[in-house]
Design a protein around this nucleic acid. Structure first.
Lengths: 340, 340
DNA sequence: CTGAAAGCGCTTACAG
DNA sequence: CTGAAAGCGCTTACAG
């Protein structure tokens, strides 16, 4: 095997009998270049298997055509088990980037690391997409910092009230409302809610508010004893449900703040000898692939991850271009299965 | 908000009263620099929130400290549903890269694209990790091409016989052997195999060979009518199982070449009124998160994705450093659940 | 339409 | 231990 010395624009210029500037223009399809010259140059480039050196291009033009995705989860959660919902988002973001001609740098960060701005400061990325169920209280000062640095970023999640941050998120309130409305229509009256309902988990909180609003609208009073905190894991859902059962709470429906929690809840209920949906109806949120395969298949609110990824990328690109991004809410879709 | 003009090494040099070369050395912890000077420079750098421009560094040093991950699936498969097994690999590879101080560029490619060498040719990445259940026949010429170009890459998957390519993979033969041995111990004699058993899907093929070897070892003859091709999706598993049932095949156990296929097979068997494991025992391969939540929970061969990611990254780094990588086989682990 | 030249921000021989 | 200088491979005003 012979060593393949990489061709530069000077090599092409030499062979084409033009200057290197002209080569550079021709390869970028500049209208300034004579068509015949351009074609000739492009042919030689192809022949030499020439590829623009991205480091040189980026250094010179001061932009990287690369976006960075920072996925963070609470440091307490298990490293190896990333929430499937985010993996689905990762897939759609990757695709959206590719469609826009951008590369994607991926990083899983703990909340406590000094990740902010690293990628953009080093010119490795033009902007950042933040993804994760974050602890909002700890998270906020990071956002403020990023914002102050003038870093370009968009985030997925619940809207940040007192801050001007580009956010794309699901309409969690409405999704929560819809699921609970569905449970009520099925004749359930005492509905437990498993999931942290505070600013520490703003998305769950919004789902809870929607849930509570639906109850009120139906004339059912909200029983605070039926809400138990839990973060986004199967284990947390299992433990919280156990706690609820141990406390002897009475309920005929259970709203899990996300599908993973629902999977844990189903396990706890089943172990306790309760039949789903006959004794207790269960609903989740997200519609992760697993949702249709648990027993019984889970009723849930589907989040449109394809659209979400697309909007995140498009808005970040807008922001980088100096335009004002829109804060957008995506509607979830009720998926009825046999758990309710 | 004031505009934060990015500091360069010259700004630091000016403030520290030294040359830019010394700044560069100090920030890289070169032993050539006087400690006092180094500390002073580093303090100033921190104060100015200085970050090395990666494009400049990479251009100059001709390496990127970035690896690229190319995940490809057959063009026929659904875009939105990436096999959970690969997502798990993605997580572990990301972590392994971070541990080594490398960034990770992620790209999902279709097999028919001209992806080969793109990242390395443009100096965006120092090497490439290839991931995917690929159609081996179509795939091979790409590998040959990559190899000829002198691109640094490692791949996950079955060993390529007649080519010197760095490969990390699961011991699929042994995993297949173990699962079938397990089924035989449980008293099953007529075992179907759902999954493509040919060079088009070399990993499945190895699992099949292990399966067949276990049968032979137990004195059971291999019935070719009990093997149906299927690629790595739930749908393919469902359809292949339907086909098997429609043909009136007799079997008391079913070996699915991967968990997703198993999930589809369970659906088909259940619809057909068969009880699992009483009428038919089912086993899968991979141990994706879903495996423990299907009904009934799935017996499978767990692949150690954490170790796999680590080995892929380590071997690629070796290769880049000019060392010979090792072709390694990782043992799978039998996970017994109630589907068998 | 084309070319000569500057410069993006670093790293690294080379000389002292 | 330190500095002056070259150069990585491009893009892009500037001049013609």
């Amino acid at each position: 095997m012979y060593i393949n010395v990489k061709a530069t624009s000077f090599d092409i210029a030499y062979r084409a009998g033009v200057s290197q500037s002209t080569v550079s223009r021709a390869l970028r399809n500049s209208p300034l270049v004579n068509e015949e010259t351009r074609l000739k140059i492009q042919a030689i480039a192809k022949e030499l298997n020439y590829k623009v050196d991205k480091n040189a291009r980026n250094l010179r033009s001061q932009q990287s055509n690369t976006l960075a995705l920072l996925l963070f989860e609470d440091p307490t959660s298990d490293d190896s088990q990333i929430n499937p919902f985010f993996l689905s988002m990762l897939g759609s973001i990757t695709r959206a980037c590719a469609n826009k001609g951008y590369d994607l740098l991926v990083s899983f960060q703990q909340m406590d690391n000094d990740w902010h701005a690293e990628f953009e400061d080093t010119n490795k990325a033009d902007g950042i997409i933040l993804l994760g169920y974050g602890d909002y209280v700890a998270y906020k000062e990071k956002l403020v910092h990023l914002h102050e640095q003038g870093t370009h970023f968009v985030r997925w999640g619940a809207e940040v009230k007192d801050m001007d941050v580009a956010t794309i998120g699901c309409d969690n309130f409405h999704g929560g409302y819809q699921l609970t409305e569905h449970l009520i229509q099925k004749g359930h009256k005492q509905c437990a809610f498993i999931g942290t309902a505070s600013r520490r988990a703003p998305e769950f909180y919004d789902r809870y508010k929607g849930h509570a609003a639906a109850l009120k609208h139906a004339g059912i009073s909200v029983d605070e004893n039926l809400q138990i905190d839990a973060l986004y894991t199967e284990e947390a859902g299992y433990l919280a449900s156990k706690e609820l059962l141990a406390a002897g709470a009475k309920f005929d429906a259970l709203f899990a703040a996300c599908d993973l929690i629902a999977v844990g809840a189903i396990r706890a209920l089943t172990e306790h000898g309760l039949a789903i949906p006959d004794d207790v109806a269960v609903v989740g949120f997200d519609d992760i692939p697993m949702a249709s395969f648990v027993n019984p298949p889970l009723t849930t609110a589907k989040q449109d991850t394809m659209l979400a990824g697309q909007l995140l990328v498009e808005n970040l690109l807008k922001l980088i271009a100096g335009d004002k991004p829109s804060t957008l809410l995506i509607e979830s879709q009720l998926i009825e299965r046999s758990s309710s």
